[in-house]
Amino acid sequence: MEILHFDIAAPMPAGGTRKMALVGVVASGNLEVLVERGDAADRCAIEISTAAHGFRDLWDAVVADFVGRRAAGGLRIAINDGGARPDTVSLRLAQGVRLIEEPEA
C-alpha cells in the first residue's frame, strides 16, 4: 500500500456541526472517504491509502481542485482507495463535504 499525505491551505471553511461523515465503499473502482473535523479552520489534511502506487501527481491535482472548489477548511479527510478514477474521487470528496454539513440524521 502507498500512503500519501496532503496538508494544504483551504480558504473556504466547512459548515455544519456534524462530527463525522462517511461516503463510499472500498471496492474495485470505488473508494471510501471519511471526513472529520481537524484543527486549523483554514487547512485541510488528507491522508490517502491506495494499492495503486505511483499516482501522487494525480492525487495532488485532484486534492488541489477539491480544496479550491469546496468548503474543505477545517476538515481532516482519510481515504481508502480501491483504484478509483479521478472523477470518482472528486465525486466522493464532494459528497463527503456535503454530508458533514447536513444536520445529524
Partner: peptide, 21 residues
Amino acid sequence: VGPECRETSPHLGIFNLPAQF
C-alpha cells in the same frame, strides 16, 4: 467501534489490498 476508530484489518496489507475503516 465505528469507522472513526479505524479498526481496520491487520492482514489485508500483506496482500497489498486496501482496508475499509
